[in-house]
Design a protein around this nucleic acid. Structure first.
Lengths: 230, 230
DNA sequence: AAACATAGTGTATTTATTACACTAAGTTTA
DNA sequence: TAAACTTAGTGTAATAAATACACTATGTTT
């Protein structure tokens, strides 16, 4: 196989899979590409890493430039490097993922590379550029695995949430049904949820009590060797 | 920051963390480097990925060339890309890991890049080239996490093993003590261990019954949603 | 005031985990 | 050749965790 060098040969890119949860369903942050390759297609917010930039920092920068999001607490997911995954050259991409509260942020691309950014329900993801559908699947697997063993669901809900909202989140991401009483018993038994003196507003039925997740308490339990599991 | 191009700039490498278990302790496969950088230092078996080579295939090829090992069932671990991790240029490395039966293979480097290959107990790993100590730590974390939730311990033991050997393995990798009766009860309850009509030989005490892991049975249970957990 | 929607609560049963100590089968030693 | 040694192998009771299950409470809308 002959090697015709291009600007894209032997480059690294980063692609971010950002999950949010809104209106009862899990969503992914996608951009519409304004440049080749795959111009006009939806894609994960990703771009080339700079020569003088660490991967983790590159991931944050790229996410910010393409969507306006900051402080997303990105975690590395997997690296995709098939020979022909990029039409313009040999580009391997390191995928990162993160969970965020959708409502806290406004989407606003900072560079023209992205025409727009939007939250798309996981069930409605179209065919994406490159191997990005595969990357999203991998991220979903990871999210589902992690959700069971780490108390990360809260990162997707607003600061204050009701137990029913939390249960909904688990049920809709893991695609399982959970008994209400058992769920409450279990999640409260860990003692990392703080009941607030506050209720839901603007609901047309009995308002639910609100809770918040106390990270410090969780870390204490974790250090003691008490492992969360739903 | 100015960019002085070198042969190593913008290249990808692969580093393999291969675990084995022998004489009651966990070991890692290391090579002695015969080329720059870090000539003479111990390192993980790793090298640059070819331009026309997928990452997974590259990992197998590199492992074979440097150690003689084949069919190691490598799994991707993590990608390390700090700017200064490689003294000769910007090289990001994709780490893979695998568990193998030490006794089944003979170590024999196929190219001069590696002066020799050797199994080194995890507790005695010296300072390695590049960021390879960090990579080994990451692989250890992953191994420990996985050992608890997937029946992978068998990949480190010979085909036929006794329950005590298996328990030893868990205890020495996870650094915990396990009750003998409870361990046996639990591991046998999963029904994926087949008792053989065979006993240990060449031991100077009562010989233990041998078992083998039945992968098909495990996969059946897994499909039924029965999750292994030690 | 009745209908509606979601919040909130307890108990009994089943299943899993833990703690715990002796006998069995071989080998080595005196 | 018997005693000492080494590791294999086994069961039960007590405790803790998971499950199954249905009604009342609180507020809103009609």
């Amino acid at each position: 196989m002959k090697h015709k060098p291009t600007d894209y040969d032997n480059t690294f890119s980063i692609d971010n899979v950002i999950f949010g949860f809104d209106e009862g369903s899990l969503k992914v942050l996608l951009i519409e590409r304004a440049e080749e390759a795959f111009i006009g297609k939806m894609a994960l917010p990703g771009n080339l890493v700079r020569h003088d930039e660490n991967l983790d920092l590159g991931a944050s920068r790229i996410l910010y430039e393409l969507t306006g999001l900051k402080d997303a607490h990105l975690e590395q997911l997997y690296t995709f490097g098939d020979i022909n995954r990029h039409p313009l050259g040999r580009v391997i991409t390191v995928a990162y993922y993160s969970l965020i509260r959708i409502k806290k942020y406004k989407l606003q691309p900072k560079i023209s590379f992205a025409k727009r950014a939007a939250w798309i329900p996981v069930a409605e993801i179209p065919q994406l550029a490159f191997d990005h559908n595969v990357i999203v699947e991998k991220a979903l697997d990871r999210l589902r695995g992690k959700l069971r063993y780490k108390p990360i669901g809260f990162e997707l809900l607003s600061e204050k949430f009701s137990l029913s909202q939390l249960q909904d989140l688990y049920e809709s991401i893991l695609l399982i049904a959970i008994d209400k009483r058992n769920f409450r018993k279990k999640i409260l038994s860990y003692d990392f949820l703080i009941a607030l003196n506050e209720k839901q507003k603007d609901v047309s039925h009995r308002a639910a009590k609100l809770y918040r997740f106390d990270k410090k308490r969780y870390e204490l339990l974790d250090k003691k060797g008490i492992n969360f599991e739903l």
